[in-house]
Design a protein around this nucleic acid. Structure first.
Lengths: 270, 270
DNA sequence: ATAATAGTGTCTATCAGACATTATCTG
DNA sequence: CAGATAATGTCTGATAGACACTATTAT
């Protein structure tokens, strides 16, 4: 089969020798990471942002990201960047979507393959150009805030109806509400990532990535509620997760004064 | 804000002038299309394949695809390629996944942003290098066949368990069973596309893209069953779709002799 | 009439939503 | 004990699975 000639009577070997990648458009390709975690006191969803120290969008906050190297898959690149930021291994990491608007980067054509990572116990990195932000995602707005740095990034959301063939989508469109927003189109990555996580959280086991190895059901429920941004009924929630978990035998004291001890659980190994 | 200088004391304007895209890795980026349709007699799921007339994988069947041009989004490129193949407009077209293995193309680094399109009434294109193939996707195998051309492409599937952080995936891995398979990693695109379609079919309206504007419920049920590759209970199915459809008032005769006439339906406009 | 297909009726098990009750802990 | 939190009980309504039955057509 290798001997097969093409229309110019070239074998595959000859063809590959003559092939010049410069004949085709070659954009830069990056991967950007939506790294999510939960506050230690389960009061807020958190997202890791970095402050850009270079043009374009210099001094703006952005999702961590970087160019994909020659010998890497997009996943490998995302994994490398994730490790350089969090020093964590074997962490949940999944492709969200690929963003390709021609003008999304003013330098040159840059496409971005976005990944989402879910980590437990975000350690309090306290560098100047890297920080965990509180993330609040409602039907009306997205707010990213960091109290220590006094930064409050805010977008208002409009639900817009898109038509794809005969299928109608309800999609969020973000409009910057405050003075300065995230760099590039990173707010769209946040939106797509949260949307995907909300779709999957009931069927997959993503929530278990955001709690510690052992957890109580009130804690796990808070994780679900933070992601979905709505309260869940305690009994229904417990019924729903009951066959995914197993008791450790231990009990945990509630963080706040008063109240009964919680039973401790682990994810059930199949 | 434009006046802000970077570490080399360059303004954004100066920086962009000096910025050289050649300093970074720039792969070629294509989009490949999984274009699905249903046989006129609702007996088989169909996929549009093209025969490659150039190295690499010359003479192999492949998903239609092409390079993304300078001024296009990936969606625009997919839409352009789709129209050149099917001459259809306003058709369902959605991003599936981006494939980035460094060696997936022997020419050079080529990433592919895969899209899925759903069309009704595949017209019988009967050219030498473009044809609709029957697609059968079971838990054990994927078979792509075209009787007129005497082509039967077959892969056996293994369910493999992948671990992503704490989340375990059941994923299909394809191994070529026949003599020649699809070009490149296109079988993976088929797998990812069908997987995504199966996940969405009950919640979205994708099935309506595969039938004609008016349809009967036995027809619509066949579409679901072909995609899911399992039988559905008639009554449950009808209850499930009942609030998405509306009667036209017409009746349609069954294609085969004998049997009661079916009522005709349309998708309900919201 | 018979076979084939279309369309309904109904029972069951499951499960999310909703709310009430019991259990346990701190001060 | 009061107040707070954890855990469980129970009712309802919706729905998927399963099967049975009725209705309409062609031969």
């Amino acid at each position: 089969m290798k001997a097969k000639k093409n229309t110019q009577a070239l074998s595959e070997e000859q063809f590959l020798k003559l092939y010049n990648p410069e004949d085709y458009i070659r954009p830069s390709v990056t991967t950007d990471l939506l790294i999510l975690g939960i506050n230690k006191d389960y009061s807020s969803l958190k997202v890791l942002l970095v402050k850009r120290n270079e043009h374009p969008y210099i001094d703006r906050w952005a999702l961590p990201g970087g160019f994909i190297q020659n010998d890497e898959t997009a996943y490998n690149a995302a994994s490398r960047i994730l490790q350089s930021k969090t020093h964590l291994r074997d962490v949940y990491l999944d492709q969200i979507y690929t963003f390709t608007k021609p003008d999304r980067d003013p330098r040159t054509r840059v496409m971005s393959i976005a990944y989402m990572s879910l980590v437990s116990e975000p350690d309090e990195t306290s560098s100047d150009d890297e920080a965990w932000f509180n993330l609040k995602f409602t039907d009306q707005s997205i707010e990213l805030s960091n109290k220590e740095k006094g930064i409050f990034i805010s977008y208002t959301l409009k639900k817009e109806s898109f038509q794809n063939g005969i299928v109608r989508y309800e999609n969020f469109t973000a409009a910057l509400a405050g003075k300065e927003g995230l760099a590039f189109d990173h707010i769209e990555i946040v939106i797509e990532g949260i949307k995907k996580l909300r779709e999957q959280i009931f069927y997959g086991n993503q929530a278990f990535c955001l709690v510690e190895k052992t957890f109580t059901l009130p804690e796990l429920q808070l994780v679900f509620e933070l992601i979905l941004n709505r309260p869940l009924y305690k009994k229904s929630f417990r019924d729903m997760v009951s066959e995914k978990i197993v008791q450790t035998g231990n009990e945990k004291k509630s963080k706040i004064a008063g109240g009964r001890k919680s039973k401790e659980y682990m994810m059930k190994e199949i």
